[in-house]
């Protein structure tokens, strides 16, 4: 019984070693070299603020406001900042707004559908920062 267990263990180890050698991963260097993905997306608060201003988010998502939702049940700007980032992307840019911002919606001319990933990231960070009470410095 014991020898069977030892034999099974050794066999498993041998199999794992073989599999590890055959499926040798590419070195990190090669992986990085092949893709050469350089993230050029940088966050500029002013630019992100301009996107929020152009979209007019604060027309409906009121700010400043201590509450998370207004009397209509709509999230305030603070309410948006309080959302998880992933939920925010889904909420703001994918499904919400009753289809107003879709290609056939009332606000189809809005830039919301044409924002690139970097602009969306910037807009999300700007909204999140609004709930973080970050000091704004001036020289």
């Amino acid at each position: 019984m014991v020898s069977n267990i030892i034999r099974l263990s050794l066999g498993s180890m041998l199999f794992l070693l073989t599999a590890a050698c055959v499926n040798k991963p590419l070195s990190n260097q090669k992986t990085l070299g092949k893709g050469k993905i350089v993230d050029t997306c940088r966050y500029y608060r002013y630019e992100a603020g301009q996107i929020i201003s152009t979209l007019g988010c604060r027309n409906c998502h009121l700010a400043p406001d201590l509450e998370l939702k207004d009397d209509r049940g709509w999230p305030t700007f603070r309410g948006l900042a309080n959302m998880d980032s992933l939920k925010l992307i889904k909420y703001v840019f994918k499904e919400a707004h009753k289809g107003w911002y879709s290609k056939t919606g009332t606000f189809k001319a809005s830039r919301m559908d044409t924002l690139n990933d970097c602009e969306i990231k910037g807009a999300i960070q700007y909204i999140k920062d609004a709930g973080r009470s970050i000091a704004i410095p001036s020289q």
């Binding site: 500029y44 700010a63 400043p64 009470s133 000091a135 704004i136 410095p137 001036s138 020289q139």
Partner: peptide
């Protein structure tokens, strides 16, 4: 308080505002 601008340069703050409305 000091801040770093988008060009990577550090600055002392002459004023600080605690967010919008603050």
């Amino acid at each position: 308080h000091q801040f770093t601008d988008q060009y990577g340069k550090r600055h002392y703050s002459g004023g600080l505002t605690n967010g919008k409305g603050g």
